[in-house]
Design a protein around this nucleic acid. Sequence first.
DNA 1: AAAAAAAGAATGAACATTCATTTTTTATGT
DNA 2: ACATAAAAAATGAATGTTCATTCTTTTTTT
Lengths: 194, 194
Amino acid sequence: MAKLQKSIDKRNALIKATIELVNNNGFHATPMSKIAKMANVSPATIYLYFENKQDLVNQTYIEVKAEYTKYAFKTYDKNMPVKAGFELIWKRIADFKLKECENAMFLAQCDNTPMIDAHSRQEGIKHLQPLLDLWERGRQEGIIKPLSNYLLYAYSINPLSFLMIIQKRGDIQLNKVQLEEAYQSAWSSIKQCE
Amino acid sequence: MAKLQKSIDKRNALIKATIELVNNNGFHATPMSKIAKMANVSPATIYLYFENKQDLVNQTYIEVKAEYTKYAFKTYDKNMPVKAGFELIWKRIADFKLKECENAMFLAQCDNTPMIDAHSRQEGIKHLQPLLDLWERGRQEGIIKPLSNYLLYAYSINPLSFLMIIQKRGDIQLNKVQLEEAYQSAWSSIKQCE
DNA sequence: AAAAAAAGAATGAACATTCATTTTTTATGT
DNA sequence: ACATAAAAAATGAATGTTCATTCTTTTTTT
């Protein structure tokens, strides 16, 4: 037990260091040696936990993505009405993106880069299903526009990534009011107009 | 004249090669030697045109960003009505993102990465002013929601980046109809509801 | 005492950048 | 026009560094 615990701690430290360094310097400028140093570990030790650098980054991606979706759906129940369900999920996602900034930044970087291999990317998408199901229900009930999931995502969820990035960069600081405005815009763009 | 022309051709070839390689392999996996090879030039020659790798990437970014905004505003006239002006600019941007896919992909990667230095990023934003002015006018006329430029951009323009990426990845193929839908969503999310 | 985990140093490849030469262009004098 | 010298541009090979990964030894756990 103690051994296993210790191992998990080290693995977590490595993943955390990877996120922080990749966020600040980019993949191209984060050597294994720095990751090791930040995690208080010898470079050689990394290879006890991960196959190589690519594997480390892939696994970090999958881990963070899983945290993200877990957070998003934590309080969601698939029997909720469509509108309420969407609002709930949207706000959880917003919460994650704006509070767990490090994690969200890392995902944004991975999602726009050939840094992650196709297989891990696929793996990362899996857990988004509840949202897709909700949208399907919304379309059937005539509450949500009959657009593809991709379009709905592009208009209602993806903008949060952009907002997160510029907030991190210090260009804006979203308060409660602005967040509510952002939510209304998101909803406007996907709800079926009467 | 002949000399200058030749130089510009080489510079362009280098920039083109940089875009293509960074798009396909990421910054971290595009060595100067490959860029040189793709541009049919010796590695040493790159340093006659650019200070170093960072400078090459920064200048490529600025160049592509300038192309992007030039394209976006090509047929826009600042005396147009707000709604028509927005539709025009939006559709030009969509055109650019979906047709000049290579260029747009490169920008997306740069914009979510510490690949580009802050100064060059600043430089790249400059040319967006006509759109910001249009929005200001729209807010004053009560046609556009009283949101910050960042929010308006996040909801009406940024989704195109996401759509472009998934189209490049082969997940969707936007036709005329879907593009019109996307436009309507964009407009819905920023227009003042009556 | 055996096995597992971790470490630091070593290895070899890849890479950005520079150097010494060669090729091409430009300017000059006839 | 033309030959030729100076200047500029371009090159391939060399340089020195950085880095991912592995090897051997040491420490910790069982």
